[in-house]
Simulated assay, not measured.
Amino acid sequence: MPVIRIEMFEGRTADQKRACAKAVTEAWVATCGGTPDMVTVIFTDVAKHDWATAGRLASDPKPGS
């Protein structure tokens, strides 16, 4: 049973997550086999101030802005 975790900035709607879960599930089944009921997708919403790349918070203004 695969568990697919998706971490992303908060703000997506339930409809967007529903469509994403469907697409990811279909891609898994098409690529790796199995059935959709085997696939679990877990979304984790992360605030921009809790996400950093290259030492800079995503909530910080872009350099030069």
Rank of each mutant, 00 (worst) to 15 (best):
P2T: 02
V3K: 10
V3F: 12
V3L: 15
I4W: 01
I4T: 02
R5E: 14
R5C: 10
R5M: 12
I6Y: 05
I6K: 02
I6M: 11
E7A: 14
E7T: 15
F9M: 14
F9N: 10
G11E: 11
G11D: 11
G11C: 10
R12Y: 01
T13A: 06
A14M: 12
D15L: 12
D15N: 13
Q16N: 08
Q16L: 12
K17A: 03
A19V: 05
A19F: 07
C20N: 09
A21K: 00
K22D: 11
A23M: 10
A23T: 09
A23G: 14
V24D: 04
T25A: 00
E26N: 14
E26A: 09
E26Q: 14
A27H: 10
A27N: 04
V29T: 01
A30C: 06
T31P: 02
T31V: 07
T35E: 14
P36H: 08
D37K: 08
D37M: 08
V39L: 02
V39W: 00
V39G: 00
V39D: 02
T40F: 07
T40Q: 11
V41M: 04
V41H: 03
I42F: 04
T44N: 15
D45P: 09
D45W: 06
D45M: 06
V46R: 13
V46T: 12
A47G: 11
A47K: 13
A47F: 10
A47R: 13
K48G: 04
K48H: 11
K48E: 09
K48P: 14
K48C: 07
H49V: 06
D50H: 15
D50V: 14
W51G: 01
W51E: 03
W51T: 01
W51P: 03
T53R: 15
T53Q: 13
T53M: 14
A54W: 08
A54E: 12
A54Q: 10
G55D: 02
R56Y: 03
R56M: 03
L57W: 07
L57Q: 07
L57K: 09
L57D: 01
A58K: 15
A58H: 13
A58L: 10
S59W: 13
S59G: 04
D60L: 06
D60T: 06
D60C: 05
P61D: 08
P61C: 02
K62I: 14
P63Q: 11
P63S: 02
P63C: 07
G64K: 13
G64L: 07
S65M: 13
S65R: 14
S65W: 13
